[in-house]
């Protein structure tokens, strides 16, 4: 991939046995190391194999992309998968603690991929488990493998992200307060040269702690009132889903949801290189007519989940 040639040389990075809990735990070198390996995975240039290894997927909350892509990644590497995708069918329902579940599963599997509704659940699991824990989403907190694939997608589209030859303009739109993907991605982008544009309804703005971190890292951050304004000036428009339950007044939600919806008509005159990303699932915030435009990149983004998760699994299990 072109972006590899422009990435800064990375120092040796130790990943074997490491937990993947929060994107904050990873240095710039770590991030680049994962992206480099994902590139080799995608082009089938990596010899990494996980034959005879077992991955446990503990999904205490529903998931489509994360679970399926981790499972697909493990199968592609020759490993096997056990797990559940409904906590209702497990001993959790009988009152088993998360700690006890982990103490049991670590004896069954070589790696644990976990999604849990509580913020911080993956960190707790990582303090107990002797096998690597990969966080597949903990409440509204973190979703690091999504961030790795978001970064991978951006770096494939715009190698300047890693080379620093040009400051990329990346816009986040939608629910920036509760959306864990934008929090994690912002944290990762603090390692790069980026101008951030933020578009959010009142009450759903990016929390101060992330804004402060971005500014401290030297990112230029601007809050922009409308979606149309960012379309004209962005390289990446990262959309997130607005959730009705965040709005006390259903009428307000009804009004707001139209202001945070992108349509093909709004993209007429957009820069040709603009790409729209979304962690999916989308509901109303991206009109179906956008799919046919060259700006739509969210399904390709989801596809990048496979090589990125292959890379993460191989790294934490010491296959590379």
């Amino acid at each position: 991939m072109a972006f590899l040639a422009t990435a800064l040389p990375s120092a040796p990075v130790q990943f074997t046995g490491r937990h993947v809990v929060s994107i904050s735990d990873f240095s710039r070198n770590d991030l680049i190391h994962v992206l480099e390996l994902a590139t080799r995975m995608e082009s089938s240039q990596s010899p990494a194999r996980l034959d005879g290894k077992l991955m446990a997927t503990l999904f205490f909350e529903p998931s489509t992309r994360t679970r399926l892509s981790f499972e697909a990644a493990m199968h592609k590497l020759g490993g096997k998968v056990i797990g559940f995708s409904d906590a209702g069918s497990t001993s959790t329902k009988k009152g088993e603690s998360l700690a006890d579940t982990i103490r049991m599963v670590e004896r069954y599997a070589d790696v644990i991929v976990m999604r849990h509704p509580r913020d911080g659940a993956a960190r707790l699991a990582s303090e107990i488990s002797t096998v690597p824990v990969i966080n597949g989403g903990d409440g509204g907190n973190q979703h690091p493998s999504q961030t790795f694939l978001d970064l991978y997608t951006i770096a494939k589209l715009f190698p300047e992200l890693l080379s620093g030859e040009r400051e990329l303009t990346i816009a986040f739109a939608g629910d920036l307060r509760y959306g864990r993907t934008v929090h994690s991605l912002l944290t990762a982008l603090c390692h790069f040269k980026v101008r951030l544009l933020l578009v959010a309804p009142r009450g759903l703005e990016m929390p101060d702690q992330y804004l402060h971190a971005a500014v401290k890292a030297g990112l230029v951050v601007q809050e922009i009132p409308t979606l149309q304004e960012v379309v004209a000036q962005s390289d990446i428009l990262y959309m997130t889903r607005l959730q009705e339950e965040r709005f006390p007044d259903p009428l307000e939600f009804d009004h707001i949801k139209h202001s945070y919806r992108i349509t093909a008509a709004m993209l007429v005159g957009a820069p040709p290189h603009l790409r729209i990303l979304h962690p999916l699932p989308r509901v109303n915030e991206i009109a179906v007519d956008v799919d046919a435009t060259p700006h739509a990149h969210y399904f390709a983004q989801a596809g990048n989940g496979i090589p990125v998760r292959q890379a993460l699994l191989s790294l934490v299990m010491g296959a590379v």
Binding site: L98, A99, R118, D119, G120, A121, R123, D138, G140
Partner: peptide, 12 residues
């Protein structure tokens, strides 16, 4: 202070 923090729901 986060009501959804795992430490408020598990014995930890």
């Amino acid at each position: 202070a986060n009501p959804n923090c795992v430490t408020n729901h598990e014995r930890w």
